Amino acid sequence: MDAPVSPVTAARAALNAAIADLAALDTRTTGLEDLLALIIDSERATRVLTGLGQTWLHRAVQAGAFTDTGLTCADALSGLLHIDLSDARTRLRRSMLLTE
């Protein structure tokens, strides 16, 4: 019998499936109304997910997610997300400002 799937795992799977579906669309013949709607939805999703990501990052740091790495939080985040170190620092500062 399969173990129950957590709500987080199910939501992540649905998000990744929706992104894959959108990425697979051939929009070369899509009408202007649908293209503009996709642009609006994409912007909204980016903003919402960025805000949520900041909250989750703050919670992860507070929970000690990077303490056992032997690295600074910024160095660990940079490696985890494959982003520039200065971007990691910016994200960490922003997560602290937005969630306190």
Score class of each variant (00 low, 15 high):
V61F: 06
A74I: 01
D41R: 11
A23M: 10
L35W: 09
I83F: 04
G79H: 06
V8F: 10
D75C: 02
A3M: 07
G70F: 09
L92N: 08
Q62T: 12
R59F: 05
L71F: 01
L52A: 09
G51T: 06
A63P: 05
D68W: 00
L81I: 00
P7Y: 06
L22H: 08
Q62N: 10
L35S: 05
V8M: 10
L35D: 11
M1R: 15
D84E: 07
G70D: 01
D87C: 02
G51P: 01
Q62L: 09
A18N: 13
R47K: 14
R93M: 02
A74V: 01
E43Y: 13
A3P: 00
D75T: 00
T27C: 10
H82A: 11
R59K: 13
G70T: 08
G64Y: 12
G51C: 00
A23P: 00
A60G: 04
A24N: 10
R59P: 03
A37M: 09
L80I: 02
L97A: 11
R93N: 07
L25K: 14
N16K: 12
V48P: 00
L25V: 06
A17T: 14
Q62E: 15
V48L: 14
A18I: 00
C73Q: 13
L25P: 00
L92T: 01
D41F: 10
P4Q: 04
A76Q: 05
T9E: 15
D21A: 15
